[in-house]
Design a protein around this nucleic acid. Sequence first.
DNA 1: TTCATGGTTCGACCTTAGTCGAAGCATCAA
DNA 2: TTGATGCTTCGACTAAGGTCGAACCATGAA
Lengths: 227, 227
Amino acid sequence: MKEGPDIAHVAALIGDPARANMLTALMSGKALTVSELAEEAGVTIQTASSHLSKLDEGGLLRPRKQGRHKYFSLAGDEVAHVLEGLMGLAAGSGHVRKRTGPKDAELRKARVCYNHLAGDMGTQMFDSMMDNGHIMLDGGDLALTDEGAAFATGFEIDLDALRKARAPLCRECLDWSERRSHLAGSLGRAFLTRFEELSWAKRDQKTRVVAFSRNGAKEFTRLFLVG
Amino acid sequence: MKEGPDIAHVAALIGDPARANMLTALMSGKALTVSELAEEAGVTIQTASSHLSKLDEGGLLRPRKQGRHKYFSLAGDEVAHVLEGLMGLAAGSGHVRKRTGPKDAELRKARVCYNHLAGDMGTQMFDSMMDNGHIMLDGGDLALTDEGAAFATGFEIDLDALRKARAPLCRECLDWSERRSHLAGSLGRAFLTRFEELSWAKRDQKTRVVAFSRNGAKEFTRLFLVG
DNA sequence: TTCATGGTTCGACCTTAGTCGAAGCATCAA
DNA sequence: TTGATGCTTCGACTAAGGTCGAACCATGAA
């Protein structure tokens, strides 16, 4: 009743079904308009607008105006991180969203978590990079080693550009399906983008599923060998 | 509207002020009775009972009956982890619970997070153990190295007993105040217990504050040097 | 200007759920 | 048994907030 920040307010924001659906949709990492989010949540545009302004006020979203459209995306990694955590709790307590269809298997295999790769393949990538000393935990923060920097550059990722932005380069993020870490942060995002550029993988437009091509999966496992 | 676990339900559970207060109280790691939690939340016993059964049903709590008392504690590390994450979001968006009194400084310095040490001193301990190679990140999971095992045993922690329990030995947990990791899991708990046994530190009964004695703090910093 | 489209604001419903009083169990102690 | 304590269940009250229709802005295109 006295100590610590006000959990209840934030949690209540996430706790409404319509808003939760919107947030889940935004976990795809894409910025969506009010009408798209309304559709996603199954409510009219007015109510969606109301919900979105509340979420925004709560600091969970980042709004951007473009012409007469208003795009919303998650405010940052921390938000995505908490959402994944909640999904973990929900999944754990058997309260899965309806039955687990075929989609679910794909989601566990590879999905997009805000803007980086999550699921089975995400943790595989993370494990491999740890094993090879490309990344390491440095006092609670994840850091890119020199070898890792070389590795990323070799994969044609522009590290200098990433470093210029103030967003943290490496971050770890916990999966709800795997209960293990995967790579988040701007580097995590860059890797996923690169996979798409190389046509190794393609994001599903509607869901959070990341579909790897046969060849893409092969290249991926070659790149991210595990012990 | 279709994919992933049902966030809304869990979040709504946490989203009620009374329940949030109870959960925050349980972050102290202690098991509390229905009446104690009612007091903590500022509601009557009936409503507390109702809330607690909902939280229990949602898988957030672990109830235990002892005589005519019913004790509740958090269901596990994951729950505490998510709660800390929510605190981080709440703190970040300026929605701190009322004003930050003198208590708040103490909370940032050293506090109990579910059952282990968090706050400034918690991350210091974590950093030190990482630097000295006592713990390391092994494929997303935190692992105790041989040196670390020797270190813990030297500190008179019964590792064999801990290993017997099914709970994970090492876990990392993210602070809302520090935004850095600290050591959770049964080992994290054991360390805190040991600090208390040695009278280095004492938990405040009412809040989550961990008060280190002058000597305890000295010993602590000697033990957990940071490079 | 005029029209169309994307969002917001306002106001009025109405369901949901938190709240407590009162009564009912269960456990323990004489 | 009687009484006390801790908790649960029931029922009724009430307030909070999600929902949508309708009207209102704002932007862009003809």
